[in-house]
């Protein structure tokens, strides 16, 4: 008689990252991570959980347990639309939305996200536009995002762009802040300096 065939379905503790939870909990908004009682309110209230590979409740549990790789590679963090429903409803006052932001930033830092996935590209293009002009330029930011992620979609989106243009809802020129936009760059550079000082 052959023996029962088994395989490990989840990781052994020694394969997990023991520092992951602490690094997330240490960020502003992450402080209540360990208070989760796994009630699932966040998952049931989330309007996008139906598309997620791991629901918000599972992401919290996995973050806490140190499933770093799985959490950062999940589509969950990119599907979060920042509606703050989970944050408001959580009976343990966990700022779930802030934790999702922290995980997105970590995934970008460690470069684990689907290739040509538009969300991180959008975020970076947005960042560049603000650094240069002090303002976000919706038209240019979105155009770059499409060109860098799905250039073939450019044609599909041109109809919408044209309609916006005709109605004066998209500026052709670059919107700039009043005054000296280099102050923005200096402010951002100083943030880096100050952060290094306090770490």
């Amino acid at each position: 008689m052959s023996s029962l065939q088994i395989q490990v379905r989840i990781k052994h503790q020694e394969e997990l990252d023991p520092d992951f939870a602490n690094s997330i909990a240490a960020l502003p908004g992450g402080e209540n991570l360990s208070r989760c009682i796994q009630c699932g309110t966040c998952s049931s209230t989330c309007p996008v959980s139906l598309y997620m590979d791991y629901t918000p409740r599972r992401i919290i549990a996995m973050t806490r347990a140190g499933f770093k790789q799985e959490v950062l590679a999940s589509n969950t963090i990119w599907l979060c639309a920042s509606c703050y429903e989970c944050t408001v409803d959580c009976p343990r006052e966990i700022k779930v939305t802030d934790i999702m932001y922290a995980l997105k930033r970590r995934a970008m830092e460690e470069k684990v996200y689907p290739k040509r996935f538009p969300t991180p590209v959008l975020a970076k293009e947005f960042f560049k536009s603000v650094l240069k002009t002090g303002r976000s330029n919706e038209g240019l930011t979105v155009t770059w995002m499409i060109l860098k992620t799905a250039p073939l979609n450019m044609l599909k989106q041109m109809g919408l762009g044209l309609k916006l243009l005709l109605r004066g809802r998209m500026a052709l020129g670059v919107e700039k802040m009043e005054g000296d936009p280099t102050q923005i760059r200096r402010l951002m550079e100083q943030v880096e300096v100050e952060e290094k000082k306090t770490h």
Binding site: R105, F127, V130, S136
Partner: peptide, 22 residues
């Protein structure tokens, strides 16, 4: 006078402290 971008959702996912400073 002189207002700049608030930092918004997209910025928050690149660098939170910078978004707050903006």
């Amino acid at each position: 006078p002189g207002w700049n971008c608030c930092g918004a959702t997209a910025y928050m996912s690149v660098d939170e402290t910078k978004a707050f400073a903006l």
